[in-house]
Computed example of a mutant assay.
Amino acid sequence: MNAPEFWWTSNSTWQSRLLSPLSALYGYFSAKRFGNKPRYKADKPVICIGNFTAGGTGKTPFALALNALLLEAGHKPGFLLRGYGGTNKGPLVVDQCSFAAEEVGDEALLLARRGPTVISADRVAGAKLLEQQDISVIIMDDGFQNPSLHKDFSIVLLDAKTGIGNAKCIPAGPLRMPFEKQLPSVSLLMVIGEGECGIQPKNAAECTGIDMMSAAIRPISADALEGERVLAFAGIGRPEKLFASLREVGADVVEAMSFPDHHYFKKDDARKILKIAEAQDLLPITTTKDYVRLDGREEPAIERLANVVSVLEVEMKISDPEALMNYLKPLLENGKA
């Protein structure tokens, strides 16, 4: 499911008030679990890429950007993630040529293009399997609130446009656990984009002495889309990010279709998209994550959509890559990498 709109409303709503008792329970037990001692400390340094809230903040693009920096510095990173959206719970090494998104999740297929990748619902088992690969450092995509595996450095992403929403825990709001309980475990706060909603949590983090940096998600080679009439569709944490990015590069978003996060497209979805696009002479366009859930499937309608759809490629631009590597240098040189 996509996050409900009332999560991102600063004013109290009847939905958030109604769900507040459940939210309090969720937050209490999440914080209690978070305080558990890790079951395992890996032989390789573990850099966790997380966020305070449910939903997308750009963790996977950031993991890819960090991977590139580590490779450039001579390290051998490997990816560890849950494999959300896939049926296989692992632990297993993901070969992008041998698995479908339905099995291992879309994020795993994207990461596997760039380096050794392991999915596992049990992060400890996944870390042990990844340690057997030719790696020197583990990039953990998500799992900041999962206490089972020791993290040597936690980079938490904050979307400046949405912040921490209404500051309530699931299901009354987007927080995975109370905000103030999460702050002490943050090694570095990475603010993504610009927006007023990020000001309050940034100030709170600054007051606790947490170092901060900034980054932004930028489209790659999108000049050809200027003036193009498009049908944009996405099944990601916040589909409106795609729509906004397209408008920023000058595309005319005539139709915008949102699907649940990690949505596994059915033939009826593909037929509907194709029908609307053809009727209005629109270019269907989606995200890289969505495309990997279409590519390689044999259902005729989905195969046809995969053949005609365009993909808006994006990348995470870190404001000061050298400063980020300086933060990680003690861990990478004096740790175990």
Rank of each mutant, 00 (worst) to 15 (best):
T9I: 13
Q15H: 15
S16R: 13
S16I: 05
L18N: 08
S20Y: 02
L25C: 14
F29E: 09
A31T: 13
F34A: 14
N36P: 04
R39L: 15
D43V: 02
P45L: 05
I47Y: 05
I47L: 14
I49C: 14
N51S: 11
N51T: 10
G56K: 01
T57Y: 00
K59V: 07
L66C: 11
N67T: 09
L69H: 09
L71N: 11
L71M: 12
A73L: 07
A73P: 08
A73Q: 14
G74D: 10
H75E: 10
P77I: 13
L81M: 06
R82T: 04
V94I: 09
Q96I: 07
S98D: 08
F99Q: 09
G105V: 09
D106F: 01
D106N: 03
D106H: 03
E107K: 02
A108I: 08
L110I: 03
G115W: 01
P116M: 08
V118R: 00
D122R: 06
G126V: 05
G126M: 03
K128S: 04
K128Q: 12
K128W: 00
L129T: 02
L129C: 14
Q133V: 00
D134S: 06
I135T: 05
M140K: 13
D141V: 01
G143M: 03
F144S: 04
P147F: 03
P147V: 05
S148D: 14
H150G: 02
D152C: 02
F153Y: 15
I155A: 03
V156C: 07
L157W: 00
A160D: 11
T162C: 06
A167Y: 04
A167C: 06
R176E: 06
F179L: 11
K181R: 12
Q182M: 13
S185D: 14
V186T: 05
V186M: 04
L188H: 09
M190Y: 05
V191I: 14
V191D: 11
A204G: 01
E206L: 12
E206F: 10
A216P: 03
A216I: 12
I220E: 10
L225D: 00
E228F: 00
R229E: 12
L231F: 01
A232G: 12
G235V: 03
G235T: 04
I236H: 01
P239E: 10
P239V: 10
E240T: 13
F243C: 08
V249N: 05
D252N: 12
D252R: 13
V253H: 02
V254G: 01
P260F: 09
K266C: 09
K267L: 05
D269H: 07
R271I: 05
R271Q: 14
K272P: 00
I273R: 00
A279H: 13
A279C: 04
L282I: 04
L282W: 02
L283M: 13
P284W: 07
P284A: 11
I285Q: 10
T286H: 04
Y291V: 07
Y291H: 15
Y291N: 06
V292F: 00
R293H: 05
L294H: 01
D295I: 05
E298Q: 14
E299A: 13
E299F: 01
P300R: 11
P300E: 10
E303I: 02
A306C: 08
V309H: 04
S310A: 11
L312Q: 03
E313Y: 03
V314A: 09
I318F: 02
M325C: 15
N326E: 15
K329A: 15
P330M: 13
L332H: 12
G335C: 12
A337L: 11
